[in-house]
Amino acid sequence: MPILIVLALIVLVIFAIIGIYNGLVVLKNQVKNAYSQIEVQLKRRHDLIPNLVETVKGYMTHERETLEKVINARNIASKISPDAKLQSANENVLSGALKSLFALSENYPDLKANQNFLALQEELTSTENRIAFARQFYNDSVMKYNTKKEVFPNNMIVSMFNFESFSMFEIENSEERENVKVNFN
């Protein structure tokens, strides 16, 4: 009888370990999935920028410097680096360059009335939103995963198996958080 109880306990423990392990794997995959979603959206932005520059070039002849800055930032960011922190820094530079481009475009009424430009602007606004949302979902997932990893019985299992850790996307200064909104009134 005592043997049976001990056996039952062992089976129970094994099942608990399996449950925790599987839960962690599910979360880990969610984090990875979220990260690939960010990459998809970043790629989308990198693909849109050449179109934008092509459209804008004819109108903004005096803003060569800004355009070059955008292209450079785009070229650096499009070589996606495995380090999330470095990548996010590069992307922030690109965001800043794009923002200054859109701010400057306010001075060119003809450009602002161009249908192609408006469509591109909508696409880029949406892409910026998607990147922000993908990052926030990634951050949420990482936070959930990290918390689950550190909680008491789980941390023992984590030390037994190899569970990698992820770093969050961070935005350095509050200025970077500000999205430029266009007001038509």
């Binding site: 003809d110 602002k112 009335a113 408006l118 958080r177 999205n179 909104k181 007001n183 038509f184 009134n185």
Partner: peptide, 27 residues
Amino acid sequence: IPIKNVKEVKIEPKIALACALGGAVKD
């Protein structure tokens, strides 16, 4: 979790009008 900060940029009414009425204004 911070709220998204939206900075408003004012556009000249003339241009806004052109955009509102269908865009594609050349001159």
